[in-house]
């Protein structure tokens, strides 16, 4: 996209610059006086460009999209082309982590903070792992890391989400 190589590790600066060049060239304001068809076209092309930019600038969306290009759709549960099912051991671990969170919560906010910090590190770790796998062209490994990433992200949301009520 944007004439950039299909890689995850692209400097943010480069994405931004390319996006701005393109967005300026096709923005509907540039075609104000022109025919309806041209204006509609400008709106369509701009929309697609903006949608692509939204994914490119978000490292997680970008990684998930690259995995999707390799034929693995993390939003689908199809056994062959969908998200890989996590290992049973991982699921058991997630249940235990939730219990640990409940315990941490019972014993005070500093324990919860420590818990959050640890999960945050792990979330980043999984993303790094996914990016590394994409760099050596192993999309299925990247997909597994991204599934774990989603689980951990949800756990992180629970840490913050439930705290509001406390």
């Amino acid at each position: 996209m944007l004439g950039l190589p299909r890689r995850h590790a692209i400097p943010r600066e480069l994405i931004e610059n390319r996006y701005l060049e393109f967005a300026t060239a096709v923005h509907p304001d540039r075609f104000v006086g022109e025919s309806l068809a041209t204006r509609r076209e400008a709106q369509e092309v701009s929309s697609r460009l903006n949608e692509g930019y939204r994914i490119l600038r978000d490292p997680i969306a970008r990684a998930e999209y690259m995995v999707k290009l390799a034929g693995i759709d993390l939003d689908s549960s199809d056994p062959t082309t969908g998200a890989p099912a996590p290992e049973p051991a991982f699921l058991v671990e997630m249940i235990e982590r939730r219990e640990a969170l409940a315990e941490a919560r019972a014993s005070g906010s500093s324990r919860v903070d420590a818990f959050r910090a640890q999960v945050e590190d792990e979330v980043e770790g999984e993303l790094d792992r996914a990016v590394a796998a994409l760099e050596i062209d192993e999309p299925s490994r990247a997909a597994r890391a991204l599934v774990a990433h989603r689980y951990l992200q949800r756990l992180l949301q629970d840490v913050d989400g439930q705290e509001i009520g406390v």
Binding site: M1, L2, G3, E21, F22, T24, A25, V26, V45, R48, L49, E51, G52, I55, Y65, K68, L69, D73, D75
Partner: peptide, 26 residues
Amino acid sequence: LRAGMSGKSVTEIEGSLDEGATLDER
């Protein structure tokens, strides 16, 4: 679009637009 791309081939631009289409499907 190409003017914005300075030096990229048309195929690449088309490729990039195709990717946009795939995205819509997803």
